[in-house]
Nucleic acid binder design. Structure first.
Length: 398
RNA sequence: GCACAGGUGGGUGAGUGGUUAAAGCCAACAGACUGUAAAUCUGUCCCUCUCAGGAGGUACGGAGGUUCGAAUCCUCCCCUGUGCA
């Protein structure tokens, strides 16, 4: 049995349920913190567990460069390496195709990268991205795609989308031929971890398929830029290739927010209603709430963690920049309406001081709060869906 | 007391006759951040006006002086550091 979505309640287009993975069940709609390098920046795994994080992201390109696949493989896979027993989703490196413009060259075969760390040359293709992600052993892995830049003319968007479709087929083919070659990509490992690990190190890799438990799944990615018709076509042809879940990619690349919304809404219509839908790289608390209400099941975004490190905090009253002088002697909690550990314990004045003084604790506390806020936002939406009333939630405008 | 070295904008510290309201860094203040090359980046940072392009004023320890022109050269004074008495 592969990763799948168990829908337990619906409300309009929205659905609430559980994403079943080899590393536990994930309440959906879910926000997934981004842990690019095997770490959600600024916060430890046990704090993430306390916050109730059930799934987080890792990144193929970054982990491949450092520490390298072999290291992760020898350490027993990404879960074990980073001591995280809950679910993980790895991004394929497709976004780096978009963001590292000056360091890469895209061809039909794949993408030639220059490492941003030491300038060394590397090549990522659908096959290579699958090989790496299988080795990392995340519960959900992503097809290797090209995240189309914005703005781009219709011809360019189509060409990019077509290539992503060909890459999707290649990703799936490689995945089908090689999945299960790594024992830790399955929940079955837990009981006899050492034994399996030993055999893995001996090069005797167990085929997971025969274990009969949940195993790693590959999701497809819909592209098509801001062209609604291409989005429809991309969705339909990606579905034809066939995946257990579908992502909406190519958004949050600099386009106006209302356009993001239009593209999401129109793409969602074309995705299977009984499979997970993952909107990549989005958004503010308000946005993730809206998208979840529109029928998105999974979202990830660096915003809460990055903003936290930059002193920008999300609260029930909107954005708050803790750097501002006005908070220097403010005794009140960051967000009086928030029940996170940070808001329970520390004042704005103290948080501002930590930030101003460049104390590492500022990053930790700010990250704890922002992630808590995001997770609470999703909990609210889930409750709203399960409550099945008729009106929409109006989230704080950000 | 003598001998060196030195006093620059909130701090540090460049600058040794004009292109200098005076580099850079720090601090301060504001803004940005959306599948993480991000504890990052951008802007402001002497005062007063402004039709926002500029205009005027004041400024490199103090006071004089040389010069068309001085933070930069000269004289005296004040202060700081180091060394010797």
């Amino acid at each position: 049995m592969s990763v799948h979505l168990q829908i337990e309640a619906t409300r309009g287009a929205a659905r609430a349920g559980k994403l079943i993975t080899p590393h536990g069940e994930v309440e959906t709609p879910v926000f997934m913190p981004v842990g690019t390098l095997g770490s959600v920046k600024g916060i430890s795994q046990d704090l993430l567990e306390d916050l109730g994080v059930e799934i987080l992201l890792g990144n193929t390109y970054h982990l491949y460069l450092r520490p390298g696949v072999e290291t992760v493989r020898k350490m027993g896979g990404l879960h074990r390496f980073m001591s995280w027993d809950r679910a993980i989703l790895t991004d394929s490196g497709g976004f780096q195709v978009f963001s590292l413009t000056e360091l890469r060259k895209v061809t039909e075969e794949g993408v030639a990268f220059r490492s941003h760390l030491d300038g060394s040359s590397h090549f990522l293709s659908p096959e290579k991205a699958m090989e790496i992600q299988i080795a990392l052993g995340a519960d959900v892995i992503m097809a290797f795609d090209e995240c189309t830049e914005y703005p781009a003319d219709a011809a360019r968007v189509r060409a990019s989308m077509e290539m992503t479709l060909r890459w999707a087929a290649r990703s799936k083919k490689y995945f089908e031929e090689h999945k299960g070659e790594v024992p830790w990509a399955s929940g079955v490992v837990k009981g006899r971890e050492k034994q399996v690990l030993r055999s893995a190190q001996d090069g005797k890799l167990n085929k997971l398929a025969q274990a009969g438990t949940a195993s790693q799944a590959l999701f497809g990615i819909v592209q098509g830029g801001m062209e609604m018709e291409l989005r429809r076509e991309s969705a339909s042809r990606t579905i034809d290739i066939g995946f257990p879940g579908y992502a909406i990619g190519g958004l949050s690349v600099g386009e106006p927010r209302n356009l993001t919304r239009d593209v999401v809404e129109s793409t969602l219509e074309h995705l299977p209603s009984n499979q997970p839908r993952y909107l990549m790289g989005v958004g503010t608390p308000d946005e993730i709430s809206q998208y979840a209400q529109s029928g998105v099941d999974m979202m990830d975004c660096v915003l809460p963690t990055r903003a936290a490190r930059h002193g920008l905090l999300f609260t029930s009253e909107g954005k708050l920049s803790i750097k501002q002088a006005r908070y220097a002697q403010d005794e009140s909690a960051l967000d009086p309406a928030c029940d996170c550990r940070v808001c329970q314990r520390y004042s704005r004045a103290y948080l501002r001081h930590l930030y101003a003084a460049n104390e590492l604790l500022a990053q930790v506390l700010n990250t704890v709060h922002n992630l808590h806020y995001y997770l609470a936002t999703m909990r609210t939406v889930r409750a709203w869906i399960r409550a099945g009333q008729t009106s929409r939630i109006v989230a704080t405008q950000m």
